[in-house]
């Protein structure tokens, strides 16, 4: 009875419980724009979104995994591996010093890298779904293996001298807006549609909400999980390609602890670690909160030691506010 009452009378509490994180984000932006006049300039805004795009794209894949009550710890290391692979396939000329170096059209290099991401993700999914290994462990294994493979593949060195057609992906603009932002937008729309408008997306929620009930409803839980991790792998590959193109190099040290930033974005965006709840637009907001924080503190020249402390405190505070509202709701 009492719940119905709350619903028929929209209250501040109900609004906060749904859009609390947006309010936090807007508040953060207002504070930062007061403290730094350039914060709200068009150039800085595109700047922030471009910087966020790499973690942002990864975190959308992580969102899928977390909704199914899983997790993906391998994304950072997979970025490293895919970045060196795509770099060795996109060089201007063969490099005899590298173990692997092949010159080929950019489109094929990109396609191979995306496929690699999908395959690695599918391995994560298969281990989890059919091997019955907890996703924490399966992706932890992949995290270590991918990092090692990346170092092995290039003997621990970065791979540079990339074609301009390739680096354009990370540095170019269309209609004055950087390409990484377009790609982030495109991936966001794709992920959002997949999650909220397709059968696959409903199955993802069903498995996370109640796996046994999902089975009763005739859902193939194992197949769906493999797809979830394969999609996360795909997004990780997109991210890796962007990072490589943006920095004009692939490097086995790339992506260190990106998985944690991605998980943080996801959780700040209101995705419940106990599964069954989450959305892509909120995941984007979560990523933006972290991005805006980094940007704002650099703009203001906050001391590096304080930056880390402030970031940690704000992340925990955002989730804490979210958790309180969950309890009320």
């Amino acid at each position: 009875m009492s719940q119905q009452k709350i619903l028929s009378r929209p209250s501040v509490g109900a609004f906060m419980s749904k859009y609390g994180i947006v309010v936090i984000f807007v508040g953060l932006c207002i504070i930062l724009s007061i403290m730094s006049p350039v914060f709200l300039s068009m150039r800085n805004i595109t700047n922030v979104i471009r910087q966020v795009s790499i973690i942002g794209i990864v975190s959308m894949g992580v969102t899928f995994a977390i909704i199914t009550t899983g997790i993906d710890l391998s994304s950072g290391s997979m970025i490293a591996l895919i970045s060196v692979v795509v770099a060795t396939l996109s060089q201007n000329a063969m490099n005899p010093d590298q173990p692997v170096s092949i010159v080929m059209p950019i489109a094929i290099a990109v396609a191979i890298s995306l496929l690699l991401g999908i395959i690695l993700g599918a391995v994560n999914g298969t281990l989890t779904a059919f091997g019955k290994i907890p996703p924490f462990i399966a992706t932890l294994g992949m995290m270590t293996v991918a990092r090692g493979a990346a170092a092995l593949y290039t003997r621990g060195r970065p791979v540079g001298d990339l074609k301009e057609t390739f680096t354009f992906i990370g540095t170019g603009s269309i209609f004055g807006i950087p390409l990484p932002i377009w790609i982030y937008l495109a991936m966001g729309i794709l992920a959002h549609i997949l999650l909220s408008k397709t059968k696959f997306g409903r199955h993802v929620f069903a498995i996370g909400g109640n796996e046994q009930a999902a089975r009763i409803c005739g859902i193939n839980v194992e197949k769906t999980l493999v797809k979830v991790y394969a999609f996360a792998g795909f997004l990780t590959a997109v991210s890796a390609i962007l990072l490589t193109a943006r920095t004009s190099a692939g490097n086995p040290t790339y992506g260190l602890s990106y998985e944690l930033d991605a998980i943080a974005s996801t959780v700040i965006g209101g995705t419940s670690l106990s599964g069954g709840v989450g959305s892509i637009p909120f995941c984007v907001i979560g990523a933006l909160i972290i991005g805006v924080l980094n940007n704002g503190m650099d703009l203001m020249g906050v001391n590096a030691y304080w930056q880390q402390i402030a970031k940690g405190v704000i992340i925990v505070a955002a989730v804490l506010i979210d958790a309180r509202k969950q309890k009320r709701g």
């Binding site: 409903r202 069903a206 909400g209 009930a213 009763i216 409803c217 069954g276």
Partner: peptide
């Protein structure tokens, strides 16, 4: 099923989503 919580409802989904799940096609 016998146990609504264990094998029936998807607690965090809407009534609509709960209804369409087995026949989503």
């Amino acid at each position: 099923t016998e146990d609504r919580k264990q094998t029936g409802i998807f607690p965090d989904l809407s009534i609509k989503d709960n209804i369409i799940m087995p026949d989503i096609d």
